[in-house]
């Protein structure tokens, strides 16, 4: 096991709060949601496992019971509040069990399996054979494009799936995730600093639009008309 202090980027003997803060930052950085639809997802998972191990180790073995009693328990996991349990279930489910697919044909299931394992050519080959170009078809095509790095086409296809079936949670969720990824990148603290140098209407509109999308994501709405 690597030096847990090094993994979390804190000094040996760091306080509980420091460790917790560093841990939370790292979880945000390497969260599986951020690496969905990304060819490096496996490496991010590995990194998350390392971070969780280091955090749990420090919580258990630091000889400081204060750590354990106060631990951050937000994820439904009993082990010192790390994202472990939640994370592992997600991994074994490969995002497939989250949603209901009883009506899906075998082919669709195969395409999803190939996309998850990163075999995009095979996924594309099966998809091309499918005759019924319904919302799911456009959604899967969009996923393949995003994984390949063809973001414009990926976005358009997923958008189309959402338009064809606006009630589908998975489609909307993926579309929101794509928007949030680019918004998230633009709102990094380094760049936010820069935007303060030249604050303009565009930024204000962008922020409002994003706040609206985020509200809609959670079921609410900020700006009625869009």
């Amino acid at each position: 096991m690597k030096d847990p202090y090094k993994v979390l980027g804190v000094k040996p003997g760091a306080s509980y709060d420091e460790i917790k803060k560093a841990y939370r930052e790292l979880v945000k950085k390497y969260h599986p949601d951020r690496y969905r639809d990304n060819p490096l997802a496996d490496l991010a998972e590995e990194k998350m496992r390392e971070i969780n191990e280091a955090y749990e180790y420090l919580m258990k073995n630091a000889g400081n019971y204060q750590y354990q009693s106060e631990s951050y328990d937000n994820s439904g996991s009993s082990q010192s509040g790390s994202y472990g349990a939640q994370y592992q279930s997600r991994q074994s489910g490969q995002y497939q069990t989250q949603y209901e697919y009883q009506d899906e044909s075998d082919l669709e299931r195969q395409v999803r399996a190939y996309i998850n394992s990163g075999n995009l050519n095979e996924a594309q080959r099966i998809l091309d054979r499918m005759r019924n170009r319904n919302a799911v078809w456009y959604y899967l095509q969009g996923l393949i494009f995003v994984r390949r790095g063809w973001y414009d086409r990926g976005y358009t296809n997923i958008q189309r799936a959402v338009n064809m079936d606006p009630t589908n949670y998975e489609f909307r969720n993926t579309l929101n995730n794509l928007n949030n990824q680019s918004y998230g990148y633009r709102s990094n603290p380094y760049y936010t600093n820069v935007t303060q140098r030249e604050y303009d209407m565009c930024q204000i509109c962008g922020t409002l639009w994003c706040a609206d999308s985020l509200c809609e994501c959670m079921g609410g709405d900020l700006i009625r008309c869009c």
Binding site: R34, L40, A44, Y151, D152, L178, S182, G184, Y185, R186
Partner: peptide, 20 residues
């Protein structure tokens, strides 16, 4: 806006790769 999405999304992927 559409071009902006492709550009920014590519950069967000660069950032994710760099983090790893």
């Amino acid at each position: 806006e559409r071009i902006d999405f492709s550009l920014t999304y590519s950069l967000s992927e660069c950032e994710k790769a760099y983090a790893l």
